[in-house]
Simulated assay, not measured.
Amino acid sequence: MRHAARLLAVLLLAVLCLQLWFAGRILLMRAVAPQSTSFQRSEIARLLVEKHQVAWAQQWVDDEQLPRTLKRAVIASEDDGFAGHGGVDWDAIQGAWKRNEKAQARAEARKARAPAKVIGGSTITQQLAKNLFLSGERTLLRKGQELLLTLMLEALLDKRRILEIYLNSVEWGEGVFGAQAAARHYFGRDAARLGSFEAARLAVMLPAPKRFERQPGSPYVMGRAGLIAGRMASAQLP
Rank of each mutant, 00 (worst) to 15 (best):
A4D: 11
A4H: 13
A5I: 12
L7I: 13
L8T: 07
V10L: 13
L12M: 15
L12G: 07
L13D: 10
L18A: 15
L18H: 13
W21Y: 12
F22L: 13
I26A: 04
I26T: 01
R30N: 15
V32P: 01
A33V: 09
S38N: 06
F39C: 07
E43D: 15
E43W: 04
E43S: 11
I44T: 03
V49G: 00
V49S: 12
E50N: 11
K51H: 15
H52G: 09
H52V: 02
Q53G: 05
A57I: 01
A57T: 03
Q59I: 02
V61S: 00
E64L: 09
L66N: 00
R68P: 00
L70S: 01
I75S: 01
S77N: 09
E78M: 05
D79K: 02
D79A: 02
D80S: 12
G86T: 03
D89V: 03
W90R: 14
D91R: 14
I93L: 15
I93W: 03
K98C: 04
K102D: 10
K102Q: 14
K102W: 10
R106Q: 09
E108G: 13
R110A: 12
A114H: 11
K117N: 04
G121E: 03
S122I: 09
T123G: 03
T123Q: 08
T125E: 01
T125N: 04
L128P: 00
K130G: 02
G136F: 08
E137Q: 13
L141Q: 11
K143F: 07
Q145S: 11
L148E: 00
L148G: 05
L149R: 03
L149Y: 09
M152P: 00
L153Q: 04
L156R: 06
L157M: 09
R161I: 06
I165Y: 02
Y166D: 03
Y166F: 14
V170E: 03
V170C: 07
V170I: 14
G173Y: 12
E174S: 12
V176N: 01
A181I: 04
A183D: 01
H185S: 05
Y186N: 00
D190W: 01
A191G: 03
A191E: 00
R193T: 05
R193H: 12
R193L: 08
V204K: 02
V204P: 02
A208L: 05
F212W: 13
G217T: 03
V221Y: 06
V221N: 08
R224T: 03
A225K: 04
A225I: 01
A225L: 07
L227V: 14
A233R: 14
A235M: 06
A235D: 01
P238R: 01
P238T: 05
